[in-house]
């Protein structure tokens, strides 16, 4: 029994690593999603082209390949990354590519009347976006962003492939040392589920707060 404490400790260490990758990955994904999402609707074709290329590339190739690129190929090009950096980069950019379409879709779904209201008040395009369109679009993005964050959390398991000791990696270590599969994997099953519950509840709370008194369909 005594020894299980040590093993659970190992898994909890992994849980911290998983939490770290998830938080950092989500932060990067958010930045990438807004950059590419806004790029997609830019007036400049160069920006539209760049954003489209990024989105299509990251959605059209596998996260495994992207992760291996980040960890094994980038160093050859003179950009050595730690496993954590490589994991965050690959996951953040991958999920950001999906998020970009969410950003774009939400912005386009803000009713035309809102854009015309801004024009009649002589806002510049930046002011219109910053003060009127994005605050309303953001509320629309939240539910899908929540799903994307959970996808990212689930995706973190692949970083064990580049020897990053996340939850899944540690569960495998425990399994190898104890011969028990059920205990470590039941533990991480529970932990993953707890994490995703935290994510989806926080998103719901944020959504409730931001949409208070707000009826997006009617001005």
């Amino acid at each position: 029994m005594e020894q299980w404490y040590g093993y659970i400790g190992l898994i909890l260490d992994g849980a911290v690593v998983t939490a770290k990758i998830t938080v950092l990955g989500c932060a990067l994904a958010l930045v990438a999603a807004f950059t590419a999402g806004l790029g997609r609707i830019s007036r400049f074709w160069q920006l539209r082209w760049l954003a489209t290329a990024y989105i299509e590339f990251f959605r059209g190739t596998s996260i495994f390949v992207q992760l291996f690129w980040a960890y094994f190929v980038l160093p050859l090009l003179g950009v050595p990354l730690s496993p954590l950096q490589a994991g965050v980069l690959a996951l953040g950019l991958n999920v950001g590519a999906y998020g970009a379409e969410v950003v774009r879709g939400a912005i386009l779904s803000v009713p035309r009347e809102q854009y015309e209201g801004c024009k009649a008040l002589n806002f510049t395009r930046i002011q219109e976006l910053r003060h009127v369109i994005l605050p309303q679009a953001f509320v629309l993005m939240l539910p899908t962003f929540g799903n994307n964050a959970i996808e990212l959390l689930k995706g973190t398991a692949v970083v064990s492939l580049i020897s990053l000791s996340d939850m899944t990696f540690q569960a495998q270590v425990v399994r190898a040392q104890t011969g028990s599969t059920a205990v470590p994997f039941l533990t991480i099953l529970f932990l993953y589920f707890a994490y995703s519950t935290v994510i989806s509840n926080s998103i719901k709370a944020l959504e409730r707060r931001l949409s208070r008194g707000l009826d997006v369909t009617k001005g």
């Binding site: 209201g117 009649a120 002589n122 707000l214 001005g219």
Partner: peptide
């Protein structure tokens, strides 16, 4: 545009 203002049928207020 600074010379002109408009009021719309559907108000277009910022919700």
């Amino acid at each position: 545009r600074a010379k002109i203002g408009m009021v719309f049928q559907l108000f277009n207020l910022f919700p």
